[in-house]
Each structure stands twice: as structure tokens, then as C-alpha cells.
């Protein structure tokens, strides 16, 4: 899991062009949107594409997005769960 979280952080930085951030700057439990990293709706779309492109996971229910993309940890949990299936 720790390996996946580090990989995910690097992928998020690259996909969202967070050029001033290093993986260590992102707390795995902090919110990605709002008060945390301050991501917005366009970033949400980028994260959906990231999940599908890099992990082959298509978000079936848009309502799930808020929960799945809450933090790096929740994203990693979702990937773990759905890649196993």
C-alpha cells in the first residue's frame, strides 16, 4: 500500500502539473479538494482519466467521486479494492 501511495502522489503531481510540490509535500490523508491541495472540478476530471489510464479502473457511479477522490489514501484504497476484483 505504501508503494502505491507514493506512486499515486507522483502521478497526481505530474497529471495536475503541481510543479512546486514534491510527493512528500502531500499528506496522504489530507483532502485533495477544498482546504487541502485546493484542486477543482477540472482536476477531478484529470483524476478520473488517471484512474482509467493508469489503473484500468472506470468510475461507474459519478456519486462515488467525492468519496474516492477525498484523499490520496482513499484513492489508493479504491484502486486496491477494484484491481483485486
Amino acid at each position: 500500500m505504501a508503494e502505491l501511495i507514493e506512486k499515486l502522489k507522483a502521478e497526481i503531481i505530474e497529471a495536475l502539473n503541481l510543479e512546486d510540490l514534491e510527493p512528500d509535500d502531500i499528506d496522504k490523508d489530507s483532502p485533495l479538494f477544498g482546504d487541502g491541495l485546493g484542486l477543482d472540478s477540472i482536476d477531478a476530471l484529470e483524476l478520473i482519466v488517471l484512474l482509467e489510464k493508469n489503473y484500468g479502473i472506470k468510475l461507474q457511479d459519478p456519486k462515488e467521486g467525492k468519496k474516492v477522490f477525498f484523499s490520496v489514501q482513499t484513492m489508493a484504497d479504491y484502486i486496491n479494492e477494484h484491481q483485486k476484483n
Binding site: 497529471a15 477540472i42 476530471l45 484529470e46 482519466v49 482509467e52 489510464k53
Partner: peptide
């Protein structure tokens, strides 16, 4: 490169 899949929104917008 992605065969018309996985198109990210930012560069499109």
C-alpha cells in the same frame, strides 16, 4: 498515443 481514449480535459479546454 492513447488511440482516442483517456483524453485529459486541460489541454483540450
Amino acid at each position: 498515443e492513447n488511440e482516442e481514449k483517456f483524453l485529459t480535459p486541460t489541454s483540450f479546454i
